[in-house]
Design a protein around this nucleic acid. Sequence first.
DNA 1: TATTTATCCTACTAATTTGGTCGGCTTTTG
DNA 2: CAAAAGCCGACCAAATTAGTAGGATAAATA
Lengths: 161, 161
Amino acid sequence: MRLTTKGRYAVTAMLDLALHEGKGPISLADISERQGISLSYLEQLFAKLRRNNLVASVRGPGGGYQLNRPKADIDVAEVIDAVNENVDATGCNRRGDCQSGEVCLTHHLWCDLSDQIHTFLSGITLADLVERKDVKAVSSRQEARQAEKMIASDIRVASGL
Amino acid sequence: MRLTTKGRYAVTAMLDLALHEGKGPISLADISERQGISLSYLEQLFAKLRRNNLVASVRGPGGGYQLNRPKADIDVAEVIDAVNENVDATGCNRRGDCQSGEVCLTHHLWCDLSDQIHTFLSGITLADLVERKDVKAVSSRQEARQAEKMIASDIRVASGL
DNA sequence: TATTTATCCTACTAATTTGGTCGGCTTTTG
DNA sequence: CAAAAGCCGACCAAATTAGTAGGATAAATA
Ligand code: FES
Ligand code: FES
């Protein structure tokens, strides 16, 4: 089992989409800027998210990504799973054949742990996260930052730099 | 966060010690044979377990390792921690500074998850595991296998091979 | 129609971790 | 003294992570 930035990035990016739902397609460049994730890396992650039908893409100018299902129907476990981070703590993928085909001493312990984690993560949807006040706080901070940057670059453009 | 064979091996080996408590020091060769873990790799893991005062060693023939505390006082989280697998799911080590010094969108989610996992794992002691019937079943199978092997090697020795 | 904006796709990379192996040393028992 | 154990450090192949780089394709717009 592992949970690294890959899975965290995926969830963060999906949550960003959920937060900006209804504003048309969101470009990866926007997400990259707001969440501080490398654009090329986001592309790779979204390739997987798209293959798993979690997002739909629109190409061309003004294009980007949108959630492919209502945000209340997408849970965190799915997202992590889509980018190949498996939330299974067993060494045998629940088959029970760790020790040369037979069940090992601690198999049941890891099964129980896996169940715990999966139950927790699959019980949280993007809609739940959007409603949380800590998420709202961070999101509005990020929007403010982005607006600052856009104004700054407008000034540069207007002054011909 | 990661949970790989390293942590699983450590817990399995510690449980093996707990199961054979009271029979004097247990050699790594025995554990290696019973649990199917490479001897040299066990040595590395036990170096860490010893540094964390979870086990005590006895050198020389007849030597081996013993639990350094009652098995009811050693929980699974400690063991995993001792071999450097950290059970923290955040990217910031709970500091909340993922996004250039500030808290990221999903920080609280990962904190909650980490708490879940830690609560679960630290609530299970080696004594609890020893009592489980699935553990008892696997353990007696392993003892039987080991006895078979010893008899087989005795025959080889007796017949001068 | 040319340009720009965006997704899409493939290949490469440095750094780290995992799960070991190997050889040799030290301590203790018989 | 020999054998059985722990102790220790170096080394290793394979996998994974978190990217970069460079281009191809599709669509909107000037
Ligand atoms: S973890 Fe499933 S058999 Fe060992
Ligand atoms: S995970 Fe803690 S700030 Fe991002």
